[in-house]
Simulated assay, not measured.
Amino acid sequence: MKTTLVLTATSLLVSGAYAQSQLQEAAPQFNSRPQIVAESMKDARPRGFVPINDGSTANGAGSGVMKPGKAALTGQHYADAREARPHRLPLQGGTPK
């Protein structure tokens, strides 16, 4: 019984070591087709200056300057049109009957 337990533990230890040596990360495949294509695309990118939007300028991300979109402008147009129509101010004293 003792030898069976020792043999089982040894076989588990050896099989675990063998399984860990076969990982993709341990031995990456160089010069595979996808890697060659990715490297060629990386090399084909134009070199040069790329502006960084870190929020330090008025147009940068996170600067607090809002750029309204089409929906926001349309909504503001409708709100302005509602305010331009003549209307009566509510009288003091509660809900009208």
Rank of each mutant, 00 (worst) to 15 (best):
K42H: 14
N31F: 12
T95K: 12
L91R: 13
R47G: 03
A17V: 11
G48R: 09
L91D: 05
P28N: 02
R47W: 04
A71V: 08
A44E: 03
G60V: 00
V6E: 15
P34A: 10
H87T: 13
E25V: 05
Q29G: 02
A81K: 14
R45Y: 11
Q35P: 00
P34I: 02
G16S: 04
K97W: 03
R33P: 01
R45Q: 11
P51I: 06
K2W: 09
K2V: 06
G75D: 07
G75T: 03
L73D: 03
T10E: 06
V50F: 14
P68D: 02
S21P: 02
P96L: 01
P90D: 09
M66S: 12
G75K: 12
G55E: 05
S63L: 07
E83M: 15
V6W: 11
R82F: 15
P68Y: 08
S21H: 10
A9N: 02
Q76Y: 09
F30D: 04
E39S: 12
R45A: 12
K42S: 14
G48Q: 05
M66F: 10
G62L: 02
A26P: 00
N59L: 15
N31Y: 14
A61F: 10
A19N: 02
G75H: 11
L5D: 07
E39K: 13
L7H: 01
G16M: 01
P51M: 02
R88K: 12
K67D: 06
T10G: 05
E39R: 07
F49I: 14
A72Y: 12
G64F: 00
R45H: 07
T95G: 04
A84P: 00
K70L: 10
G69W: 08
P90W: 02
R47Y: 05
A38D: 02
K70D: 04
T10A: 12
E25F: 03
V65S: 10
R82N: 10
G94V: 05
I52F: 01
L91P: 01
Y78V: 04
Q35Y: 06
P68I: 03
G48M: 09
A26F: 09
A84N: 14
E25D: 04
V6N: 14
T8Q: 07
I52W: 03
G62K: 06
M41E: 08
G94K: 06
Q35S: 15
N53Q: 13
M66T: 13
K2F: 07
T3N: 14
L73Q: 09
Q20S: 12
G69H: 07
A79T: 04
M41R: 11
P46S: 10
R85L: 13
A9H: 00
E83K: 15
D43W: 05
N53R: 15
L7T: 06
E25L: 06
A72W: 10
V65D: 02
S21Y: 08
